[in-house]
Simulated assay, not measured.
Amino acid sequence: MGTVVLSVDAELGWGFHDFAEPPRDRLTSARRGWRTLLDLCDEYRVPATWAVVGHLFLDECAGHHADHPAPPGWFDHERGDDRMPPSLRFGDGLIDRIEAADADHEIGLHTFSHVELGADGTTARLADAELSAAVEAAREWGLDRRPRSFVFPRNNVGNLQALADHGITCYRGQAPTARADGYGAVGRLLRAAVGTTAPPLVEPRQDSLGLVDLPASLFLFSVEGPARSLAEAVVGDPVAILARRGIDEAAATDGVFHMWLHPNNLVTPRDVARMEAIFEHLARVRARSDLRVRTMGQVAAEARGAGETAREAVATDGSKPE
């Protein structure tokens, strides 16, 4: 029985607050894209894991965060002449919409202020502060259960101990490394779309900390700009093609196809059309097969349960379980 997972990096302005020149089109569409994606998930009955930047749970703040061990200037874009507007600093009803959606979404975390936990300068103290602040903000907002799933900002994996210390049980790991063939990531995707290759299915794996690594299979906005336009003119939307193949492959096997995006990727009508095409295909395949759509937390719980069963079997008779 195959599984499809959709994870969402829900960050509004926090994904770009450390950029000298943030992409204005994506910032402008950030809130609209969030609402649009929720509507599409409801229409096609797709539960997703929304990894939310913890600051978005807040209603207000002074913008200083004096007790936070962030490097100097990290919160400068919360104040001053070039500060982010409140609509990009706070959720202001968007997280409520996740909770109220018809689809049974999961709310996870994406740090408190989009610190890259795997960056060289990120200390254990800073990682702990990011997780602590995010968990506390979610609790004060009123989330009725502790967040269990986590997405690393910019997929920079590191400081796993902080996740375990704060009750996280799974995270989105990096996509399986493609072979080095000189074409680059976008080139490989385009070649795959023109050919018959499907994105990789992934397997959840539990580490020594008890965390389940659920790697990504496909970023749904990995081919953009001129490369996308060129491919669309020849074969159609290359990412939609790859997503459909991944869904088909999952349905035909017991593997997991894990796709992801940011709400602010939905900038233009053709971006929305891509998601509609992917969801429509998912709905058709699900209707004729036993394909499941699960959240990260659900997949991780199954993986942890299987691990416990395996360990119990070894403890009982000493044999290696099949």
Rank of each mutant, 00 (worst) to 15 (best):
V186E: 15
H110L: 09
T295E: 11
W260H: 03
E130R: 00
G182A: 04
V194M: 12
R145N: 15
T197K: 09
P199N: 12
M275G: 03
R32N: 15
D248F: 01
F150P: 00
L163K: 12
P85L: 11
D42K: 07
D18S: 10
S229K: 15
V157Y: 07
A240E: 09
V202K: 04
G158E: 13
R294T: 12
R245Q: 11
G225T: 09
W260A: 03
M1T: 06
A273K: 14
G15Q: 13
I98A: 07
H77D: 15
H281K: 06
T268E: 14
V46H: 11
V52C: 04
A103F: 02
W74D: 13
G80L: 11
R288Q: 12
G167R: 10
P269A: 10
G93Y: 04
G255W: 03
A227Y: 04
L12V: 08
H114R: 08
A193L: 07
R139L: 02
R288W: 00
F57I: 03
L230N: 03
W141L: 02
P22A: 12
D18R: 14
T36W: 00
H55S: 11
R148N: 02
E276N: 01
M259Y: 03
R79T: 07
P153R: 03
A283T: 10
Q174L: 10
D39C: 04
H65L: 13
G142A: 12
T295L: 06
H110T: 10
A301M: 08
R228G: 05
I107Q: 06
H105T: 11
P200C: 09
G305K: 01
R139N: 12
L131R: 08
A251Q: 02
W14Y: 05
R145D: 04
G182T: 14
A164G: 02
P204M: 08
G225W: 13
M84N: 00
D96P: 02
L209I: 02
G54R: 08
R24L: 15
P69T: 01
A51M: 14
R146D: 11
T253D: 13
V256F: 01
L126E: 13
L38P: 08
N265R: 09
D317E: 10
E11A: 14
D102T: 14
P226N: 10
V52L: 03
L211M: 02
H262W: 12
P153G: 07
D81A: 15
A10Y: 08
T268L: 08
A251P: 01
H64V: 11
T268I: 01
D254V: 11
R26I: 12
A101P: 04
L37A: 03
T253W: 08
T49Q: 08
D237E: 00
M275K: 05
G142F: 01
G305W: 02
P69S: 04
H105C: 11
S7V: 12
D290G: 07
D317N: 14
G54S: 10
H64S: 14
A287W: 05
A315S: 06
R304W: 02
R274V: 09
M259K: 05
H77W: 14
